[in-house]
């Protein structure tokens, strides 16, 4: 069953001003429950705008977002309820931290949701564990954490609301390679345990190809492609014409194939490529 259905969705910034700008243009798409969706697109292609419409932070200029079959703007007064169902982690979420301690900050969402103290304590600790924040850090001021720790605290703040759909807008931007790796693994660990739908915006094709079940490609506000990473990244020319690129390892394998090496198409990760090449070498009797 599709958990979110998007119908003819459009959004224009600054309507009736000289700065009018169509950021999302007539998008139609469906997401299944438990899927990991990747969203890629050039800077300014409308990714952030699109995901903010999924939990009603922005009201669409036209079109609908259906959550479990119901239009989220059906009762505008109850839009807050939607925000607990569709959790949203913004680009650079560390700038939203505000409370005295990390613990209190993470508990902001669950408290707004109206949980009691016991439940709050439980969800906060669980969320902190998912993103690897130790108990010692929980009692610190969020302003005394390192950049990466702040990021994780902010993500925990959204996970703590236990949303059915978790939207992450470039969660790994600006982190060091190790930090990215760890955060990505933590998010996937969370997904495996909670089995909810994850929506992942990223500029890293490597990250996307590693975790996404299906990938949306946006260009100038339009949804250009929506398919499995394998099918998407097979269309190198189309992807590159939109100012994007395919994962480097995919490109290398494609080039090797063009030179006549017998490798399978649609290799997305280094691990896959490694076994492919080893198999080839074995077949040819080199090793």
């Amino acid at each position: 069953m599709s958990i979110i259905e998007v119908k003819d969705l459009s959004f224009t910034y600054g309507i009736n001003t000289p700065f009018e700008k169509k950021a999302v243009d007539d998008v139609n798409v469906c997401f299944n429950e438990g899927e990991v969706i990747g969203l890629i697109g050039h800077t300014g292609s409308g990714k952030s705008t699109f995901v903010q419409m999924l939990n009603g932070l922005i009201k669409p200029t036209s079109g609908q977002v259906l959550l479990e079959g119901k239009d989220i703007w059906e009762k505008p007064k109850e839009i807050r309820k939607i925000r607990f169902k569709v959790g949203m982690v913004f680009q650079y979420p560390e700038y939203q931290l505000f409370d005295e301690t990390v613990y209190k900050d993470i508990s902001f969402g669950p408290r707004n949701k109206g949980l009691n103290e016991n439940e709050i304590d439980l969800t906060v600790r669980k969320a902190a564990k998912f993103v690897g924040l130790s108990d010692k850090l929980l009692n610190k001021s969020p302003f005394d954490l390192s950049g990466g720790e702040k990021r994780r605290a902010a993500i925990a703040g959204v996970i703590a609301m236990d949303p059915d759909v978790l939207v992450l807008d470039e969660p790994t931007a600006g982190l060091d390679p190790k930090g990215r790796e760890v955060l990505l693994a933590q998010i996937m660990g969370y997904h495996k345990e909670r089995k909810n739908t994850i929506f992942f915006v990223s500029h890293s094709m490597e990250d996307i190809s590693r975790i996404a079940d299906r990938v949306m490609v946006m260009n100038k506000g339009r949804l250009e492609m929506f398919d499995t990473p394998k099918n998407i990244f097979a269309q190198v020319e189309k992807i590159e014409s939109m100012g994007l690129r395919v994962p480097q390892i995919t490109k290398i394998i494609t080039m090797l194939r063009e030179r006549g090496y017998d490798l399978t198409d649609g290799v997305l990760t280094v691990e896959q490529a490694f076994s492919e090449v080893v198999n080839l070498l074995k077949r040819e009797g080199v090793i």
Binding site: R83, M88, F90, Y95, Q96, F108, G109, N112, V158
Partner: peptide, 13 residues
């Protein structure tokens, strides 16, 4: 605007 959206996303009323 951005911070308000972020807090609204966490259910701030």
């Amino acid at each position: 605007d951005k911070i308000m959206s972020a807090q609204k996303a966490r259910g701030a009323d």
